[in-house]
Every structure is written in structure tokens, then in C-alpha cells.
């Protein structure tokens, strides 16, 4: 068994995988070590297999899928990718399709990764930086997979020339209005800046969230299915949810109106009609 390290870097892995294919090393003869759980054996150079000299062509789509699936964080994530690559090169083209046992796992990871990028685009919250000339907005986010490098340009499209920073426990990205600066690991001062604003409330948004919710249609299960609990700490509305749910459950609301609105006095608009009694 050959033990390899790629430091969870796709281009490094790709070079290694290419070399292995050229030497016709089968997937059961090789394993990639996890960055955070180094095994006792040290990686040996690829020795005994010799280059077969045949040409290897990998479909561009497959390479794209492997790169995307590589962002899925789990121990041993690289081994499946090599096995699929190997099988496709051997002529088993369905190895990358969802109906295949390996392909099914590939597609499960692809789906999770794209979902996690989508979660980042949805649930990341920027806080304005009022006293920093170099930064307009700052965010702390904890994605479950390695989606920051791949998914952060989205915010450059959204925010124009604004200057912003996103820090995560693993990596970080900073945009100066012109170009992205991706850093892995995340610089400590970036993390400190972001953690300082994390969890900051916003009265306007919290008011909107409480008011747009229809208590007569309470359905917290659906909400949680779409917006997993792990994100609640990072969004200002997260701390309101329990209260809104229990108030609606307690039956105080038979209609859709927000409590804050019900507490205000009303106004019938006169077109020659008497004001109805409250």
C-alpha cells in the first residue's frame, strides 16, 4: 500500500493521480492520508510501478466533478476520487454516474458541496465596519465543506467596489474592491476582526423577520429542514426563532398578524363608512 499526502489540495492530488495512472497503479494499492490525522507510516515515493507509456485522456466534465467533490470534507475523501478515475480510465464509464455504487457516492458529495456553497451564499451575514477605512463589510462563517475559495467571488459580484472580508475557522478571503485575496489558513487578525462582529444584532432586520412571519401557518420543521440549526448562531434572526415559535404555539395567534402590529391602534379608511367597533 502506497501512502500519499496531498494536503487536501486538488492540483497536488491531480498530479499524483496522473502519475499513478501512468504507472497503472490500481486504487487498492494506494491511499491518501488525511491532513489532520497523519498516519504513522511516512509517505514513500512511488517506486516499483513503471510508466506504461500509454496515453491517458480524462473527460473534462469528470475532472470538474472530481475537483468539486474534493471539496467535501471527510477522512479519506481522495480515495474514492482515484477509484472512480481509475475505473473510468479502464473503460467503466458509468463509474461516475449516479446509478453506480461509486458514482452514487460521488454525486452525493457533489450535491452536499453545492448545497453548502449555496448555504454560504444564503446564510453568511455581513456586518458594516464603520471605523475601518480599509473595510466596508466583514463576516464570520463556518461552512461544513471547503467552499470558500470556490464560492467567494459571488460576493464580489454582489457588492461591487465595496471592500469586505470573510473569515472561517479554516481559511479566509478579502476583497479590496478589485481583487480577491484568498488565504489558507485564515490569518489570525482576520479571524479576530470577524469574531468581534459575529452575533451582532440588527434591530431593523429582526423587526422585519418577526413581522413577515405568519404565526397562523407555523411549520418549524420545514424551516429547519431548509435552514439547519448550525447556522442559527451566525444570523441575527437566529435568536428570535424560539420565541416566535412558542408564541405561535401558545395559540395567541388565530390569524396571521404579528403581535407588534396587533398592539397598535388601527385606522379604518373613511369613504363615508362608519368606523367599526373594536
Amino acid at each position: 500500500m502506497k501512502l500519499l499526502r496531498c494536503d487536501d489540495d486538488f492540483s497536488v492530488w491531480r498530479g499524483q493521480a496522473r502519475q499513478l495512472l501512468l504507472c497503472a497503479v490500481p486504487p487498492h494499492a494506494v491511499s491518501w492520508e488525511d491532513v489532520d490525522r497523519l498516519q504513522l507510516f511516512s509517505a514513500k515515493p512511488l517506486a516499483t510501478y513503471s510508466v506504461t507509456g500509454r496515453e491517458i485522456r480524462i473527460p473534462a466534465l469528470l475532472l470538474e466533478q472530481l475537483e468539486a467533490a474534493a471539496r467535501y470534507r471527510m477522512s479519506g475523501r481522495w480515495n474514492l476520487l482515484y477509484r472512480i478515475l481509475w475505473r473510468v480510465v479502464q473503460g467503466e464509464r458509468h463509474a461516475a454516474l449516479a446509478g453506480d455504487a461509486d458514482g452514487s457516492e460521488l454525486h452525493r458529495r457533489l450535491k452536499s458541496v453545492s448545497r453548502e456553497a449555496h448555504h454560504m451564499h444564503a446564510f453568511l451575514r455581513f456586518h458594516p465596519c464603520l471605523d475601518d477605512a480599509e473595510l466596508d463589510y466583514i463576516a464570520w462563517h463556518e461552512p461544513a465543506h471547503d467552499v470558500l475559495a470556490w464560492g467567494s467571488e459571488h460576493f464580489a459580484h454582489r457588492l461591487g467596489r465595496q471592500k469586505w472580508l470573510i473569515a472561517t475557522p479554516h481559511d479566509g478571503v478579502r476583497f479590496d474592491g478589485e481583487k480577491l485575496d484568498y488565504q489558507k489558513p485564515c490569518p489570525l487578525d482576520w479571524q479576530q476582526l470577524a469574531q468581534a462582529v459575529r452575533g451582532q444584532g440588527d434591530k431593523l432586520w429582526e423587526t422585519y423577520y418577526s413581522s413577515i412571519f405568519n404565526p397562523a401557518r407555523l411549520n418549524p420543521k420545514v424551516m429547519q429542514g431548509h435552514m439547519p440549526l448550525r447556522f442559527w448562531a451566525g444570523i441575527p434572526e437566529g435568536k428570535l426563532i424560539q420565541g416566535l415559535v412558542s408564541n405561535a404555539r401558545a395559540g395567541s395567534q388565530k390569524n396571521g398578524q404579528a403581535e407588534a402590529v396587533a398592539a397598535k391602534s388601527g385606522k379604518v379608511i373613511g369613504v363615508g363608512r362608519p368606523r367599526s367597533a373594536r
Binding site: H154, Y209, P215, N219, P220, M223
Partner: peptide, 20 residues
């Protein structure tokens, strides 16, 4: 200058307790 982007895909930035 200015802000804002669209890419054809919608984004749900939050969900309220009615599941919307």
C-alpha cells in the same frame, strides 16, 4: 459603481418559522 448581482438562480437568505 453600485451594488447588486443576479444569476438566474434565486437564493433563500432565511426561512421564517412558517417554513417560508
Amino acid at each position: 459603481a453600485g451594488i447588486g448581482a443576479t444569476d438566474g438562480m434565486g437564493i433563500c437568505h432565511s426561512y421564517t418559522p412558517d417554513g417560508r
